[in-house]
């Protein structure tokens, strides 16, 4: 369990233990539970009335534009995390700081643009 990837092997151990945990509990559940399905039971729940049409209804996803903003900020975070560990280490200096501020400025323009466009409010 040493070396750079050794740590990840231990995380993999947790994953294996998790799969084991789920397998055992589902196995026990399968053996213990009753299984008497009827047509009525297998309908989807619709507050007491019979469901009309399929479940995968078309619905308007409000805030779908947020996913674009999310991508912007996820990329932002990818650059921010490593920068945050070294930004004031010796040898990096003011240029490192200002460069990141310029980058954050661009990201902020993104959210300001969305704000101005009214994307962030309920339509």
């Amino acid at each position: 369990m040493d070396g750079y990837l050794g740590g990840y092997a231990v995380v993999g151990l947790v994953l294996v233990a998790g799969v084991l945990f789920v397998t055992v509990s589902f196995g026990a559940n399968r053996l213990l539970r009753p299984d008497r399905p009827t047509a009525q039971k297998l309908l989807t729940y619709e507050c007491g009335v019979d469901p009309v049409g399929g479940g995968w209804a078309q619905s308007y996803v409000r805030y779908y534009v947020f996913t674009f903003l999310y991508v912007v900020f996820a990329v932002d975070a990818v650059f921010l995390f490593p920068w945050a560990t070294v930004f004031d280490a010796p040898g990096f200096g003011l240029a490192t700081l200002v460069e990141m501020f310029v980058f954050l400025g661009f990201v902020a323009v993104g959210i300001l643009y969305a704000w101005r466009k009214g994307v962030l409010s309920w339509v």
Partner: peptide, 19 residues
């Protein structure tokens, strides 16, 4: 689940956790 309520719940969850 193929049912409207869970579908709405999952859409909300996606937007919420993203934000």
């Amino acid at each position: 689940s193929g049912s409207p309520y869970p579908l709405l719940g999952s859409l909300r969850s996606a937007a919420q956790v993203i934000s």
